[in-house]
Amino acid sequence: MTQRTRNWLLLAPAGTWFLVMLIVPLTVVFIFSFGERAPSGGVVLALTFEQYANLPARWAAFKNTMTLAPIGTLSALIIAYPLAYFLAVKANPRWKTILLVLVIVPFWTSILIRSYAWIFLLGGRGIPALLEWVGIEGLRLINTPFAVLVGIIYGYLPLMVFPIFVSLDKLDKRLLEASSDLGAKPWKTFLQVTLPLSIPGIATGCMLVFILLMGEYLIPALLGGGKVFFVGNALVDLFLQSRNWAYGSAVAVTLVVIMLITVTIYMRLISRLGASREDVSIM
């Protein structure tokens, strides 16, 4: 067997998977997006831009996704970084693994069940009731963008913690000593050594969380209560309820294009930040 055939064989399973599960559906969706709604639901193939012209009708879903996905990613980063830093640098090595497992424990139950817990906590008899008790009245949390944000941060935190933890954990601690030895105060050492060397982890974590958030629909559906719609929710609605496949396809194609553009810009930014490309493991 030549090296070439072997390489092809290695690529074959994943390649087939990509072709069948990704390229083909995407092509179908792309073709559908230029079609028209069939009277009985479904799609009639055509070549019209009518569906794209109608996109502004779903502006709210795009707006919510494009604001809450970045805000959620950033918030998760701000909360995850100190946690990952503590686990990797400060925590007693004996406890490290246990603490790390604790971070993933929530993943052992379904996000659905966990989100229901949040519905209760943010709902009338949860936190607002507690606040009322101390005198803060009339605060509504459930079915607001805030509730969705809380759910997002909660659900995606481990995904952000892990890559950052890995990059901080493999950071040679003697580099921190070297920095201190050369006269840098602890805060300067963090800014000049720790932070730059954890950029690959930050980049991977943000990328992972951001891409998944762009397609999120469960958390907005449960904690947004139909008031805070994501594009994902719009798609569920268009394909499953109103059975307007052509319009749904146009929305889906637009989402994919937006994702491609933002991810490209993002990768440019990251490589300009100095992290060499091979450092960022999932790119």
């Binding site: 003697r174 580099l175 070297a178 050594v193």
Partner: peptide, 8 residues
């Protein structure tokens, strides 16, 4: 340092 600990 023993393994130099240069900033990569």
């Amino acid at each position: 340092f023993q393994q130099y600990a240069l900033f990569p």
